[in-house]
Simulated scan of single mutants.
Amino acid sequence: MKTTIKKLTVIGLGGVGGYFGFKLAQRYSNPEELQISFVARGETFEIVKKDGLRLLSPEHESPIAHPAAIYEEFTNVPGPDMFLICVKEYDLEKVCLALKDKIKADTVILPLMNGVDIYERIRKVITTGIVLPACVYVASHIKEKGTVEHKGNPGKIVVGNDPKNPDYNAQELVDLMKSAGIDIQYKEDAFPDIWTKFFFIASFGLVSARYNQSIGQINELPELRERATLIMEEIKAIATKKNINIPAEIIANTFQKAATFPYSTPTSLQLDIQAKKENTELELFAGAIMDYGKSLGLPVLESTRIYEEIKAGFIS
């Protein structure tokens, strides 16, 4: 299967979509080469439409990029050749339902989101097109509406083949991303990378949210480290049952990774739970583990327990 990407639409201008969307819009300022469009809502839509998208990053001297077009409603988006989906997991189903009728057999969807079940959740709604499993790393966040701030290492994407369309060659996509200065790695199978990241973000996210303790404290305090270990053991059992090729020493590797963060670093789930936000990544982490446990016949007692504690507000 071959496709030619001439129109690319970025959905969501948060930390992830804003960072990668900025790079694409700045590089492809000539829409005849590649037409970059954004989808944003409310005040963000108004600001970016008027003044452009701002990225504060050591990687760019010029902080403003303008897309060829920006839309507030999905119904107004002409069907592009490719969608970059960069939304929170609780908005994913709504986005997929809105896009469903715009997806042709050769439309490419690249979801840049956290979570191990993103591909499956997209495929429940969108059965056609090419969906590329991916893992994304970037330290960026919304500083204010229309402005994204990036610190630390350059953002990175690991992208793999669509299990439903294994013959699709993503090299064209990789080349256009690299031309925009995006660090992207193409692998036949991206699921090991997706699951490896999930070991860290799910276990440390859940324990940090339950106890309001930092990544360094979880690594150091025996009780918290034990709970994180139990969650990782449940994730490992699921990954093994699903034939995901993860390292045997994945749990030790995850704690080593955590030790590279500054001691007082919080997790995003911890911050959202503390702020009592209505929508959080709790379902993305514990919810996914519990769903897999149920469907695969695996006990996930620790993930269920900590999920119920967080839902009940037992934060010490």
Results as ranks from 00 to 15, higher is better:
119 Y>S: 01
157 I>R: 01
156 K>G: 00
143 K>C: 02
139 A>Q: 11
150 H>S: 02
134 A>M: 09
150 H>V: 02
154 P>I: 12
144 E>T: 12
126 I>Q: 03
144 E>K: 15
123 R>C: 06
146 G>E: 08
142 I>C: 11
132 L>T: 05
153 N>Q: 13
157 I>T: 03
132 L>D: 02
150 H>F: 01
153 N>R: 09
123 R>S: 05
124 K>Q: 14
121 R>G: 09
148 V>F: 04
128 T>F: 02
143 K>P: 00
137 Y>M: 13
160 G>C: 12
151 K>Q: 14
121 R>A: 12
131 V>S: 02
163 P>L: 08
137 Y>Q: 13
129 G>Y: 11
131 V>C: 12
141 H>G: 06
160 G>M: 10
136 V>W: 02
146 G>H: 08
156 K>S: 05
136 V>I: 15
128 T>N: 10
150 H>D: 02
159 V>Y: 00
138 V>R: 14
155 G>F: 02
154 P>N: 14
125 V>K: 11
158 V>H: 08
135 C>I: 06
163 P>G: 07
159 V>I: 14
132 L>G: 04
125 V>G: 04
136 V>H: 00
151 K>A: 11
126 I>K: 03
130 I>D: 12
122 I>C: 00
133 P>W: 05
152 G>N: 13
151 K>R: 13
149 E>W: 13
131 V>L: 11
126 I>Y: 04
149 E>D: 13
161 N>S: 12
121 R>V: 12
153 N>Y: 13
119 Y>C: 06
161 N>F: 04
122 I>D: 00
159 V>N: 00
142 I>D: 04
120 E>A: 08
132 L>N: 06
